[in-house]
Design a binder for these strands. Structure first.
Lengths: 194, 194, 194, 194
DNA sequence: GATGAATGAGAATTCATTCAT
DNA sequence: GATGAATGAATTCTCATTCAT
């Protein structure tokens, strides 16, 4: 009984995501996914070439989509500070809205980042571009934009990580302004004397 | 465990660590490890109950050992600022001294953190205790110590992550003071008006 | 079956034949056939009960049709020698006209011969009947007609096999008379003294 | 309980050979082989890289070994006629001694011949070399040695094939001299006038 | 007649673990 | 302590076949 094809796909993706977060991608078998999504094992292969391809697709699609949201948020602001605030808020809202997806991206990143096309727009590239702009506008010191980007990203991501492990209490949105301000102060740190 | 005198054991751990970083723990078979370490497959079970136990041991032993180093570094300083500086420096030196081990801890953490005993001293608890002390000494604002700890940790770890992915050029030690200063500024951010 | 008017059916058979020769019957999936013939996978089952039935049909239909051609050629001649010449020529023309079909019959024979009805007229039975006739007419020695049939068949088939593997250069038609003469001499070999 | 390693290997090969002949290589699963050989499925992979590799090994090893026997038989004779007689006898003895192996080689040849190294000595090359020698010694007409080789091979192989299908009654050894004589007469056929 | 998503049994293969030597 | 062949359950993936549209 062929159901709506996109329905099958969505069920597979939703349950796969959840299981990957609960037991890891390697700890989740195709059978697990099929059973949770209530489809036959073989059905998965009509939609994805392999289990690996499913993982890669879930990562790449959501990672780059989030990069797009980050970029849109950033574009709506005129100053570096506004951009950082907007991006941090986007991160926090994402975490609050779909913690499962957020955790998936967090957990599998180290196995997947290398598989992205070199020119893919990612949260990292968006952040880095914003840093470059802020430096050019002399809003922050002239340090390696990658370093500034790492700091902003680290502040938010580690807060989210602590939320995942119960050390910080979600939702994160109420903390957004505070994190953004801390991030701005971090990247405003003057360059050390040489 | 460096004080274990068994040569076999050390060979297994060294090569396992490397392979886990290169191909992931699940992507590395006992046979892979045995071949790299030039021992028979069965020999591994003389030293560890299972492959899982090997992974858990490598994580727990090194993670808590590093927590100890962090704590020692922190204790040697009297002020919050000094403690943060010392801890950041310890992080950076660790990354520079043994990038493979650092990456292992970074990559497998999400699968291993939950398996640590609840009362284990970890880098996180060390950081959190330092934050609590700094708050008590009124060196930084009275926010949730977990949040301050997350920020310091995020700043350093994300810088290291960028180093792993080639976005920041190692060694990290030369950046240590700058990162510590940024961290200090971040956690010094005044509490938002309520 | 050439007289089947269905275009779909013909496309299926033609491409199936080619794929079976290229990758073997087991190495060719229904999907492969459907894609090559540009029909849906399910369409195949409108024409054949199963993939197995398709293979069996392709073999049986063509094998017995060829037996018919062989028989017709044989009948047109009055002498054993003429009959052998005519049959060898028919073999060679078949190979030259449709090498793909010839190879298919050659390759799958061992899996299919047992499935033919016991009374089916095949190239083997035709040859054997001709040998029996030639013996009765005292044109060749009185040996087991199966043996004589095997020799004629072997001479032609192995020449064709060498052509398939590039050891003999097609077309075979120009060699037909020579092969037939060799075959005739082989089966004319006097019976050994007892 | 590790039995003698070569024993396991031999059991696998013997039963695989039999099953391949009975049900075809594709019709025989690794599980079938393992059960027949009374080993676990995984044990097979300690000895062969894959099921395919097992098939290929069984073919190549036995096919080339037989080529060696053929060559030895041929070398022991001084004349073309003697060589043909000796080779035909070797074929017949092989069939009689190990019909299962003979049938295996016969059945899978078309899937395996292309996988042999280009320079492998095979029954075909041995036969062809003998034909070349006979032509040089003016024992038989100057036709393409491949053609003469095909005829000798065809005569024997098709007789064996008929024996496999019950059309000729084994053993073949008693027919050996008669087949050899027929083969010799076939390849002695004068070249056609041009 | 045709489509192609879905089925689900079964295939090959991997691999952590055991154990006789 | 060490070896490595053997185990056998589990995994990923394939594929002939079905069936709602």
């Amino acid at each position: 009984m062929p159901r709506d094809s996109s329905d099958t796909r969505q069920r597979i993706e939703r349950h796969a995501l959840r299981l990957f977060v609960e037991h890891g991608a390697d700890g989740t078998s195709v059978r697990d996914i099929a059973q949770a999504a209530k489809v036959a094992e073989g059905a998965l292969y009509r939609h994805y070439e392999s289990k690996d391809a499913l993982v890669a697709h879930l990562f790449a699609a959501n990672y780059t989509r989030f990069a797009g949201e980050l970029d849109a948020a950033q574009r709506a602001e005129g100053t570096g500070r506004g951009k950082v605030r907007a991006m941090v808020a986007t991160f926090c809202r994402f975490f609050d809205a779909d913690p499962v997806l957020f955790r998936f991206l967090l957990f599998v990143q180290h196995g997947q980042l290398a598989r992205l096309p070199d020119d893919a727009a990612t949260p990292v590239t968006v952040l880095q571009d914003v840093m470059t702009g802020a430096i050019e506008r002399r809003e922050i010191p002239r340090r390696d934009p990658a370093l500034s980007a790492a700091w902003v990203m680290g502040l938010v991501l580690q807060t989210a990580t602590f939320a995942v492990y119960g050390r910080v209490k979600p939702p994160l949105a109420p903390l957004s302004a505070e994190i953004a301000e801390a991030a701005w102060r971090a990247i405003s740190t003057p360059m050390p004397a040489r």
